[in-house]
Design a protein around this nucleic acid. Structure first.
Length: 313
DNA sequence: CGTTTTTGACCCGCGC
DNA sequence: GCGCGGGTCAAAAACG
């Protein structure tokens, strides 16, 4: 059956996309991780790792390259410190105000690499596009997560609309769209061929709705309640800064400012219980569950940054 | 029975 | 122009 022209998404070439219309802070630096264009021979994950100066994931873990861990502090209203286990054998999670963190209890964000890997634009929408009309371009953000589970729970409901084999990779790439009406956010999920323990989740667009839904088959123990505040503790913000990724300065609140609301770490013990029985990489899954859940990065930080750029222009 | 997933076909941009 | 690869569509199947 012949298809109508429809809204599609493609990735713009590396060459001009950053310098011409990237809404954040244009510059050559972005070329290092605007890696999804052109012939598409480099995966987003590899590009991001390259950006971090990581060339070989076959003999090292991504997380070997990240900054040293710091304790995950809870928001000011709670004095608890949540320690994440580093291995399944140490899968217990303490929630104590007195227990000091150590190397075996790296912070959640230590296990998370977040990279802005490029940008994309929508193709001709249904109904056609006028000649010469600029395509809408959406920023994309990739989360690299060490996890056994491909599709990580992030608090939104997604409908899978496609799956494709990835060239030079044994793992397929899945395409998801937010099921909320009028919300055009999409995400791609693929597993790194270099390090199969790493899942690359790429988000495109901004959610038009604030309240994430409770996914089916889940319960409130697995996620923050809708009414809960989302807090990104100072240590997490500092860790992101410590990655020395220039664009993060635009994403993160100034050091003098209170942390942006993002993740409610009070729910991390529940998340850990959910995964602690799974083998091998589940501790990172814990971190991933929290990290990916910090939808604020998408719906709070990015929009604010876009506004910032728009105001400045 | 409504929703989601699966999966082959199709569309499009790009390189040759 | 053609082939390739990424991305999406949409009918059918599966699921709850």
């Amino acid at each position: 059956m012949k298809k109508e022209s429809s809204e599609l998404t493609e990735i713009s070439p590396v060459g001009d996309q950053i310098s011409t219309s990237f809404p954040f802070s244009a510059g050559g630096l972005f070329d290092q991780f605007a890696i999804n264009g052109g012939a598409g021979e480099r995966s987003s994950s590899l590009g991001f790792l390259e950006m971090l100066g990581i060339q070989d994931l076959t003999s090292h873990s991504l997380f070997d390259y990240l900054p040293p861990p710091t304790p995950v502090s809870l928001p000011p209203e709670s004095s608890e410190v949540v320690n994440l286990p580093a291995t399944p054998n140490e899968s217990s999670v303490s929630s104590s105000s007195t227990e000091a963190p150590n190397e075996q209890d790296p912070a959640a964000l230590h296990r998370l690499a977040i990279g802005l890997i490029g940008k994309s634009f929508s193709r001709t929408p249904k109904g056609g596009k006028k000649k010469g009309q600029k395509r809408k371009r959406e920023p994309r953000i990739a989360f690299l997560t060490k996890s056994e589970v491909d599709h990580l729970e992030d608090g939104y409901r997604w409908r899978k609309y496609g799956q494709k084999a990835v060239k030079n990779s044994p793992f397929p790439r899945s395409y998801y769209r937010c099921t909320t009406a009028m919300c055009g956010v999409k995400k791609r999920v693929e597993r790194s061929s270099k390090d199969p323990t790493i899942v690359v989740t790429t988000y495109e667009g901004q959610h038009t709705h604030h309240s994430p839904v409770v996914p089916r088959g889940s319960n409130m123990m697995h996620r923050a309640p809708p009414t809960a505040g989302y807090h990104f503790g100072v240590p997490q913000v500092q860790q992101l800064r410590d990655l020395h990724l220039p664009f993060f300065d635009s994403y993160l609140p100034p050091p003098s400012q209170p942390p942006q609301p993002l993740v409610d770490f009070r729910h991390m013990p529940q998340i850990d219980r959910r995964y602690c029985t799974a083998p091998a990489t589940t501790t990172t899954m814990t971190a991933a569950g929290v990290s990916i859940r910090d939808h604020g990065l998408l719906q709070d930080l990015i929009p604010s940054q876009i506004r910032k750029v728009e105001d400045a222009s």
